[in-house]
Design a protein around this nucleic acid. Structure first.
Lengths: 157, 157
DNA sequence: GTTGAAAAGAGCATACA
DNA sequence: TGTATGCTCTTTTCAAC
């Protein structure tokens, strides 16, 4: 684990608002540090592995991938440590979670353009040793990158 | 829906690799466009709502929030359209999905520092009209921002 | 660890093909 | 729509605190 002081948390908070366009100077104004200090702290956070990358948030529906599906299943070979990694490489898979439970321990989320593609992915997963026990349509989804983080240490409220 | 040509998809693909530090020039080199063209296309994608924001990927464990939990439950008032939005405002909640199914139609993911906090969130959700039917520990998780997107239209492979 | 200033680099707007 | 140039802003670097 890594020690994060209030400045680090405040920086993370501001980055979550707009990780691409937030300048080090603007961040500095919010958290009360010089631009160069912010830059060096961001580098540290990256080096220490707290920040592992930066991604755009994409509206997949607008991008033409209108279907979201949750597949729930089990791993045939329970000793298989690398399933999650392998599954996440499958096309159209955007997230994989493994749960600590006897059954239905694998949750796989898909983004696809057609229903047919969902079936193809299900087949592919079967070949990877995964039994899909339920397929559900996701009608609404909301993700928040832990925005609660260090909010109180910034000046923007 | 929005029409995305191969250049748009290629740009999205490169952005997913490092949305903060990828310069328009570097992206242009990958996709075969001038830097200013890339910039204007990115602006268009933002204006059209395909790109809705940019977020840092954070290793929550390293940040001291070591527990990930999946809560599965149901909404008491089925007519409540705004549940997902309200739940996503609850502290420690990082994602909410509503499924098209009779039961267990709400999946809520938490990031917390203690188990006690999980229970507090469960109570809070109960007050919002949500009945939690199962609480599972997430032992492994992997998220991929649809990296499969337009990969073939870039030169980096 | 933090700062401020200078140098290097990137983005934006204009003009043009 | 895509490109090239000039202007402005940002990041990086580093000596000093």
């Amino acid at each position: 684990m890594v020690d994060l002081d209030r400045d680090d948390m405040a920086i993370l908070h501001v980055l979550q608002d707009d990780a691409r366009n937030a300048t080090t100077e603007a961040i500095g104004a919010d958290v009360g540090l010089a631009a160069s200090t912010v830059a060096s702290r961001i580098n540290d956070l990256e080096d220490r592995g707290v920040i592992t990358g930066y991604t755009p948030e994409i509206d997949y529906e607008k991008a033409g991938f209108e279907q979201r599906t949750l597949l729930v299943g089990t791993v045939t070979d329970e000793a298989d440590e690398a399933v999650v990694a392998r599954v996440s490489e499958v096309e159209n898979v955007i997230s994989v979670r493994r749960l600590l439970s006897d059954e239905a321990d694998l949750h796989i989320e898909l983004v696809t353009d057609t229903q047919k593609r969902v079936e193809a992915v299900t087949d592919e997963l079967h070949e990877l040793g995964i039994e899909i026990t339920r397929t559900s349509v996701i009608v609404e989804e909301r993700t928040r990158p832990f925005d609660h983080f260090g909010e109180k240490y910034t000046t923007d409220g």
